[in-house]
Design a protein around this nucleic acid. Sequence first.
DNA 1: CTAGTGATTAAC
DNA 2: TTAATCACTAGG
Length: 201
Amino acid sequence: MARDLLGRIMVARSAAGDVAVRLTEVEAYAGTDDPASHAFRGRTPRTAVMFGPPGHLYTYFVYGMHWCANVVTGPDGDASAVLLRAGDVIAGRDLAGARRPAVTRPERLTRGPAGLATVLGLDRDASGADLCGPDGRWEIRAGEAVPPERIASGPRVGVAAAAEVALRFWDTAAPSVSDYRVGGRLRRRPGGGPPAIRQNR
DNA sequence: CTAGTGATTAAC
DNA sequence: TTAATCACTAGG
């Protein structure tokens, strides 16, 4: 599902206008089996939505400042989800920028999960929202599929646990991908883009 | 590199 | 009740 979400269009509607983003970077979290997942410790009030049916948003607040957003992907009872990490704005650029007035470097506007969530208007109130429902405040549409050879993978960003699994996926043709981190440590990005996972360390 | 910030959780 | 942790960002 993480690979499938790359290239899709997330539309966020609001009274102030609409923003549409083409997803370029995501991370998979494998539910209760995954020590890096918020669901690893079982169902809690915060994570309950991840244990519900797929196609819903799971948002969480982190570091006292930021909201990040996931799409619940597993069947009902399975807490799998995919974190939305970066995208390219394809509609509503003015509104997107207005939602992040502190951003000075344009390339950072939708790079990183918290910034992306802010641009899409995703916070506490969005958690549990049905992406396939009739209200359609947030919706994920089919986009131009990313060819498999353009999809790279590597360790997830900012997670110390299970750093060896390559569950982060991104479109190598997109500029809007996060800096490369492993286990919370920042690494270089050879060639201007994050490297695919290495065979041995 | 690092300050900034508060919800969430488990342990007591 | 406390204390540790945290799927991060912006500026330098």
